[in-house]
Amino acid sequence: MSNDKLERAGKAQKRGNILLVGVGGQGTILASKVLSEGLMRAGCDVKMSEIHGMSQRGGSVSTHVKFGPVVYSPIIDEGRADILVSFEKVEAARWLTYLRPGGMLVVNDYEIRPLSVLTGAAQYPEDVIGKLKDVVPNLLAFDAGAIAARLGSVKAQNIVLLGALVKCMGLDDIDWRTVLKDIVPSKTYELNVRAFEAGAEKI
């Protein structure tokens, strides 16, 4: 077998369930798109599932990415995500039951108060990150929004989180720069590469 094929076979041994959650409009879908494309190019079978339509309007959203030698169901069940990446603090708490025991939580230390809180009908919980840390030993929390804003646009926070996720999963041997180049709009490419690298440096 050629080195290339050996390498591909090696990667195909990799498997994982990644759940990305956040608030409609935060860019979870683009991040998942880059992720799935990279995994496919590395020789993995990949399935990604997302929800469009009404829930996108500022609602709680989730994207499932599964990869391995063969993937059947496109959705991750409760207690089966190897890694949960939450683009917003309280969404991490909402989706936490999807994390498997010993799984890793990457959480954006970023708060988007839902309308129920803005109108006073509900409370945004205090010290969410602290409470998450109490139950998830394997947790990484940082403000990806601030990093992205420093690099040029808060909108790149999705790719900052993707950079961190890829490093956590040990998938940094894939050529993510090329994948980004092929997927993100060309005028945001440089920003997104910087965002990706800044995220990876958090690990």
């Binding site: 500022g58 108060r113 998450l132």
Partner: peptide, 17 residues
């Protein structure tokens, strides 16, 4: 089904708006 941990916080509802 084994569900994952709970953080013991009540997330405020976030329906689409």
């Amino acid at each position: 089904a084994k569900s994952g941990p709970s953080a013991g916080v009540l997330p405020p509802p976030r329906p689409p708006v």
